Amino acid sequence: MGNTIRELRQKHGLTIAEVCDRTNISRGMLSKIENAQTATSLDTLAKLASALGVSLSTLFRNYNMPEGDAQLVKSGEGMEVVRRGTKRGHTYHLLAYDRGSTKLFEPFLIAMDDASEAFPTFEHPGVEFIYMLQGKIEYRHGQSTYLLEPGDALTFRGDIPHGPEKLIELPIVFLAIIYYAAPPVES
């Protein structure tokens, strides 16, 4: 809460002395409140909120909020992985890494630049989503083929054989996300 008070005070361009004058709180006490070195009453918090021009609930906006747990993979830093059947001219960059006991999804950035390569077929659990970024490709899923161009999206069951059929315009870059069904929760 102290951080919130300090941030609001600084955002409004107020000094500690100005807030103290508005609230009749000593500078030492306000400093201790901002640095989380003391507890304070709701009455004092209400005075601070008023002096900062916000509601009392605004002071509590970050109270008991869970820590963020985001994972950032900067451009070009995705872990390069080798998938079964991939050879020269193919790169797979994994864009997020599993951090728990259950794999929920795998996002890949896939680039292809070699038209002479024979392509494997893939089968895996879950659902796959492909979003084309660059180039043109004919992509097979089961007995059907689909022409994919930049901006196109294809979603399909992963347990049906699938994979590139024909590279039409190089280079080809697409995002492929495999979503795995969550395991059933035991009661």
Rank of each mutant, 00 (worst) to 15 (best):
A51S: 05
L45T: 10
R99Q: 13
L94W: 01
A118K: 12
I110T: 11
L59H: 04
S55T: 15
H124F: 09
K87H: 12
E77V: 15
R99M: 12
L109H: 05
T91V: 15
M65K: 12
D114M: 11
K87W: 01
F108I: 01
K103P: 01
T91Q: 09
V54L: 00
L45N: 04
V54C: 11
A39G: 14
V82K: 12
T86G: 06
L72K: 13
L59V: 10
L95K: 05
S41Q: 15
R84Y: 10
A118N: 12
L45E: 07
K103D: 04
G53D: 11
A111G: 10
T91L: 07
T40W: 09
V82F: 07
S50R: 15
V81N: 07
T121W: 06
A51R: 00
G100S: 05
V127W: 03
D114R: 08
K47C: 11
H93L: 13
A39N: 15
V127G: 07
M65D: 08
V127N: 07
Y92T: 09
R88S: 06
S116N: 12
K103S: 08
E77T: 15
Y92E: 06
D69L: 07
V73K: 01
H124N: 11
D69E: 07
F108V: 03
K87I: 12
S41Y: 14
G78L: 11
R83N: 13
S41T: 15
E117F: 00
G100E: 06
T38D: 14
A111K: 07
D69G: 13
G89W: 06
D98V: 09
R88L: 02
L45G: 07
S116E: 15
L42Q: 14
A51K: 02
S50A: 14
G126R: 02
K87N: 12
G85V: 04
E117Y: 00
G53F: 07
L72W: 11
